[in-house]
Computed example of a mutant assay.
Amino acid sequence: MTHKKKLFFLSFLLLIGVIFSGCAKIDQAKVKLGLKNNDFEYIKQGKIQKIVIQNTRDPGFRFVVSDKKAISDLYDILSGAKEVKAKTSLEPDYVFEMQEGPNKVYKFNYVTGLGKSDGGNFYSDGKIYQVSKQLDSDIISSLWTIRKPKEFQKIYYGMILDEVEKYSKGDGKGKSIGINIYDDTDVAKFVFSQDLENLKYDLKDKAPNAEIKQVIKDKNTKEKEYDIDMNIKTQGYKTFLYKAEITFYNRKDKTEKKHYIKVSDDEKIGNWQTQVFDKKPDGF
């Protein structure tokens, strides 16, 4: 090796050392400022073999992530999460299981779509973090293989609001109404806690005698009873079509009233039309 080559090689090693030393100092400063955490270094170190992301409302809907680039992207997001003291009061939408091996799994609950003022949205039994919405847009959204109806939130929750508002002012006037969303299994994967919270808020204005039924997890806890049970059952959907059957069941006189609802955008330009039938139409 010539003298010039030796000098070049030594200079290169020195430059690399300075760069990595500088990066380390920057990372340390970020940790002190709360802009970075070191709690997920086991991901960066390549110890995680795969990550299982399980939807909490649909047991059959889950993602398995083993791609190294996707796992690295997840590390970038989680290492930038801020540790906080209090978690959100909302129910988790997903459970993340980071598998280092068959007997070592890091498990976290995750609530989608929350802002910085809404409390910790990514948490385990030991720690709570505020995670960027990038986790939704960059990781989870890239894994979706099922197409939900366009503007699902607007269509689905708008339909529920319209139906319960009309019923609460008619046959359900003065009666308590319990809305059962959790048994609508066909779209359970599309239902998120933040959307349910928005629906609760809208119900106070549109139908104050109605509320969303709670999921009873404790066998010793008795389910709250309402005068009227409102049950939603999705009957099919495509990108520009949604169909549902809604049943209002009167617990006192054991009678029920059914509505068949079709929401469609035939021109595919965002001009959604809603049709409501008292009897099941042909081909519904």
Rank of each mutant, 00 (worst) to 15 (best):
F240I: 04
I179Q: 00
G172M: 08
E256F: 13
T234A: 05
K166A: 12
D183Q: 14
T221G: 04
V164E: 00
K224E: 14
K200D: 10
E225S: 14
I232M: 11
V215H: 04
K189F: 10
D171P: 04
K257A: 09
G270W: 05
N198M: 11
V187M: 02
S176Q: 08
Y226E: 02
K204Q: 15
K252G: 06
Y167G: 02
V187R: 01
A244Y: 00
I160M: 09
K238P: 02
Y167R: 03
T221V: 15
Y156F: 11
K254I: 10
S176H: 05
E223C: 03
E165M: 12
V191H: 01
D253F: 12
L199F: 04
V215C: 08
E197M: 12
D229K: 08
E223D: 14
D183R: 15
E165W: 05
Q214L: 15
K169A: 13
I261A: 03
G170W: 07
K189L: 11
F190T: 01
S176V: 05
Y242Q: 03
I212F: 01
K258L: 04
L161C: 06
N198R: 15
K243C: 03
P208G: 04
S176K: 08
K222R: 13
K222P: 02
D205Y: 14
F192Q: 01
K204W: 07
N231W: 02
Q194N: 14
K262S: 13
N180C: 05
V187G: 00
Y242I: 00
T239H: 10
Y156R: 07
D253M: 06
D184T: 06
S176D: 08
G172P: 02
D266R: 14
F248Y: 04
E163F: 04
Y156V: 00
F192H: 05
I177V: 08
Y226G: 00
T185I: 09
D266P: 07
W272T: 03
P208R: 09
P208H: 06
N180I: 10
D205W: 11
K238N: 14
M159Q: 06
K238Q: 11
K173A: 12
I269A: 12
I212L: 12
G174W: 07
A207N: 01
K233N: 14
F248Q: 01
D184S: 07
T234C: 09
S168I: 01
E245S: 15
Y201N: 15
L241C: 05
N231T: 14
L203N: 01
G178H: 01
T221D: 13
K169F: 12
T221R: 10
D227G: 07
D202M: 13
D265G: 09
T234K: 05
F248D: 00
G178K: 00
Y156W: 10
S193K: 06
T185Q: 15
D253V: 12
Y167S: 02
N198C: 10
K268I: 06
K219P: 04
K217G: 09
I269G: 07
